[in-house]
Computed example of a mutant assay.
Amino acid sequence: MNSDERSKLELELLALTTIKKALDRRDEVFQIIDDAPDESAARERLAKLLDVDEDLCSFIFQLQVSAWFGTWRDRVAAQAETLRTKLGADAPQP
């Protein structure tokens, strides 16, 4: 795997990990989004809640409502684990 491929997989893994964290804490995520005056403020608050970079919170806003339910969360976790396996021992951990 070349460095560009690895970087792409690492970014995808970070996105999936962020989404999984948000799904696991969806009540808090919805409350933050509902209370925030705008998307920028919501992203900032979500970044603090999930302990991630604000840019990664953009993925949360791209989700459709149906994505917030059980089986999809399991698929995200499985896909993230597949990427961790591809990246090897030094893959970013949740």
Rank of each mutant, 00 (worst) to 15 (best):
E39C: 13
K86P: 02
G88K: 08
R84I: 03
S3P: 08
E39W: 15
F59G: 03
L83G: 06
A67I: 09
K20Y: 11
D38M: 01
E54V: 15
T17Y: 11
I33W: 00
E39Y: 08
Q64F: 11
A47C: 05
A80G: 00
D4E: 15
T82L: 06
R6W: 06
E5G: 07
L83C: 05
Q62C: 07
L83K: 12
L63Y: 06
S58Q: 08
I60P: 00
I32P: 02
A41L: 10
G88H: 06
L63K: 05
A47R: 05
T85S: 06
S66H: 09
L46G: 04
N2C: 05
D53I: 07
D27N: 12
D51M: 14
E54W: 11
E54S: 15
L13H: 07
M1D: 04
D38H: 07
L87M: 02
N2W: 01
L49G: 01
I60M: 00
E5V: 10
Q93E: 09
R26W: 12
L50Q: 01
T71P: 08
L23N: 06
E39M: 15
R75Y: 06
Q93R: 11
L87R: 04
L56D: 01
P94I: 09
A41Y: 09
V65L: 14
L49H: 00
N2L: 03
N2F: 05
I32H: 00
A47H: 09
A15L: 06
E28W: 03
R25I: 04
I60S: 01
D74C: 01
A89N: 13
K48N: 14
F30D: 04
A80R: 03
E44W: 15
I60L: 02
D34R: 14
P92T: 03
L11W: 06
R6E: 13
R75V: 03
D4I: 13
F61L: 08
W68Q: 07
L16E: 07
I32E: 00
L11A: 13
A80K: 03
V76G: 01
K20Q: 12
Q79K: 15
K20H: 09
A91Y: 02
L16T: 05
S58Y: 04
D55Q: 13
E5P: 05
V76S: 00
A89I: 14
T82S: 12
E28R: 10
Q64C: 11
Q62V: 07
S40A: 15
A80F: 02
G70I: 05
D53C: 09
A41W: 14
A41S: 14
R45E: 09
R75L: 09
A89C: 13
S7Y: 07
E54N: 11
D4P: 12
L50F: 00
A36R: 02
R6D: 05
Q62Y: 09
A91D: 04
D35T: 06
V76C: 04
D4T: 14
I33L: 01
A80V: 00
D51L: 08
D90C: 09
R25K: 15
C57A: 08
D24K: 04
T18I: 01
A41M: 15
G70R: 12
R45L: 07
K21Q: 08
A78M: 09
S66R: 13
Q64D: 15
D90S: 12
D38E: 08
T18H: 02
V52K: 04
R25A: 13
L49F: 01
T71H: 08
K21F: 02
L87D: 04
L50V: 01
L16I: 04
A80N: 01
V76W: 02
R6H: 10
P94F: 07
E44V: 08
E81N: 06
